[in-house]
Amino acid sequence: MSDTTPEEHGRGAVTRRTAVKAGTALLGAGAFARAMAPLTSFTKDITIDEFLQKHYLELDDAHLQKVLRRLEKETKDEYGADVQISDVRPTPGVQFGYALNLSVCTGCRRCADACHHENNHDRRTNNSYIRVFELSNGSLDFSEGSVDYDHTVPQPGKFYMPVQCHQCDEPPCVDVCPVQATWKEADGIVVVDYNWCIGCRYCEAACPYHARRFNWTKPEIPAEEINTEQSYLSNRIRPQGVVEKCTFCLHRTRKGRLPACLEACPTGARVFGNLLDPNSEIRRVLETKRVYVLKEELGLKPRFFYFFDE
């Protein structure tokens, strides 16, 4: 050490220390990259087009067609099914309403099952937008009811109340969404842009009817079970990590057909139609029957009504 001045010696120590620091930093960066490695399996499924895709309401026709074709191709690649994804717009002069006759519903849950298949729900969780509550005669107390009953129906002394999205006219789920990924369409149906939703689930917290579902994992459906007639805003297979909801089967109802849950109902409890058409059955029910609105006190103005026979 005799031939180094104190100054040089000091500089050498600093260099060594800096080298150790740099090495540690490198190790840290490596460990971080290693920790983040699972992200690559997630991002490889996201194309640049998908990442940069604009909000549904900002897409022009040409862009929208490109998006629909891309989604069809993705469905083919990931699920092995040839599907047609359309974009069905609301019809002017139509406001949809839905009513359900509590006097005749037997709680068979065929509506829920029809929804499950029509809307390409995850098979593993047996998801559906409709849940049927079994309640005791003389009470509408849900805390005494059961949604997972497992016995023959109808049971004596019980009645049944299917609950799905009420398509509120003043939807709290739409208000709370920070990115406008969900909105009310001109015909009153509340929809979600599954490619815009960030998955914060604030809407799930805001909905008083438990109408919204989150895709906690990527939906699993065998190719042969996929309903190939799909639309962008309704029953196309949803991506992982986004919220979904009942759309009154807009891919059917906007083309003049009835919701799948109504078609499946064996008791004729369900009545669907245009609230603006004075001759529609839904208008007849609302004008002549005793009607009950669930949680009416919240002031959300639902388009879903329960009614009773005389």
């Binding site: 997630f42 991002t43 996201i46 990442f51 909000h55 920070p178 990115v179 990924a181 815009w196 939703c197 960030i198 998955g199 914060c200 689930r201 989150f214 895709n215 991506p239 992982q240 990590g241 986004v242 919220v243």
Partner: peptide
């Protein structure tokens, strides 16, 4: 950490 789609944070 709570977002289902952190890749879409730019929507915010």
């Amino acid at each position: 950490a709570d977002l289902g789609r952190p890749d879409r944070f730019w929507h915010l």
